[in-house]
Design a protein around this nucleic acid. Sequence first.
DNA 1: GCTTTATTATGATATTAGTCATTTTTAAAA
DNA 2: TTTTAAAAATGACTAATATCATAATAAAGC
Lengths: 229, 229
Amino acid sequence: MMSRCEQCLIKEFNNLNALSKEELKQISDSKDVHVFKKGEVIFSEGKFVSGVYCIKDGVCKSSQLNANGKEQIVKFTKKGDLIGYQSAITNEANTITVTALSDVAACFIPQELIKKPLDENAKFSTAMFKTVCSDLKEANNAITNISTNTVHQRMADLILFLKDTYGATDAGVIKIQLSRKEIASSVGTATESAIRVLSTFKKDGLIDLTGKSITIIDEEGLKRLAEGI
Amino acid sequence: MMSRCEQCLIKEFNNLNALSKEELKQISDSKDVHVFKKGEVIFSEGKFVSGVYCIKDGVCKSSQLNANGKEQIVKFTKKGDLIGYQSAITNEANTITVTALSDVAACFIPQELIKKPLDENAKFSTAMFKTVCSDLKEANNAITNISTNTVHQRMADLILFLKDTYGATDAGVIKIQLSRKEIASSVGTATESAIRVLSTFKKDGLIDLTGKSITIIDEEGLKRLAEGI
DNA sequence: GCTTTATTATGATATTAGTCATTTTTAAAA
DNA sequence: TTTTAAAAATGACTAATATCATAATAAAGC
């Protein structure tokens, strides 16, 4: 039995809830559920996507490679996020690569079925507009953050961001696990530097480290650090 | 005698050319030409703008302040660009400050007259969508550039960007003049570092410096440098 | 299980960039 | 023009971060 978009709860977390019954029905009839294994690339920089993915379950990273092949993570996404809209809407090649950080299930919605409501449904297009503007705002903040703050500040910032975005257990264990290399690619530093900063944070009683798990011990301390106090 | 949007040539450089005669007429009836002196702030981070500015003449910088009051320039704009759309469309406070880098003339278009065609005119809304996506793409590239490239690379990149965006005389003199502080705020480095890098470039025969004017001597060399070769 | 490979961690060192102090130059104001 | 202030330039020094080498763990494959 195939699940229907009309009944799907995921859309309450994104702009698809602005669509009409009829529009949702059309999407539901042509959508396709794709499953990606952890580490698998969903779409790549330079390639085209002929639609938009709605993440049903799992987490992803959006990244770019610089001229020397060094990766920079520019965004994290999760359940409910729509990805690939840039390429699908502008008809231009992707400028980012999206990779599954966990096993991911995502519904692929063909381009036309997004573009049509974008033209006809003001509620949906306004919502999408706000989403892109919000992404742009976050990107601008990241530029300022990376170029004016230290690695220590950015690391504290990332840990708090991961907790806020992906949650933590009652004991403070952050629910997403990234490799040290990925942490470094997000903070914008060398892997060794990222490792060293995490060790310092542990030594200073801000966090605890067990394998890839990060436990927040002193959230206020991390906040102060992130703000450079 | 007031000039009319319907006849205005500036709109050929932006998305307003996707508007209908009637929509343009309405805008023309309520628009207002504002003049800003060099250095004047057009709108500020944290404040709201109740409309969009269409730059008729001049150049601007979009910047943010970090927690310690350090400025980061995130974008340069010029004649033809629409600024302030983020706040006007999302009804949220500005996340950037826009400042005139030269004397600037800009037409202020009230919010409603942008929002209405955005809902009703698919050609216009698609064009605006592409603009925001393009701004997002550039912002992502800036993140990767700042965090993976050296100050030398980014400075070479900025010089080439300024030439491409604002043009240069036959002799290679870039037509926009920025202070060393502004150059530093764009590259994401300290003012003294920016000055030193420019001196090195001059010594190496890549550029020439006369006051605030930068003359490109060896464009290919700058390109190689920007790419880290 | 063992073996191999990848990841994480840490030390030593080099490089890059930032800060502070001072001088020179340029621009603005009186 | 002279005075004052601001911007640009440079030196000396410090701090931050990257790189390279190597060791310790952990994960994956057989």
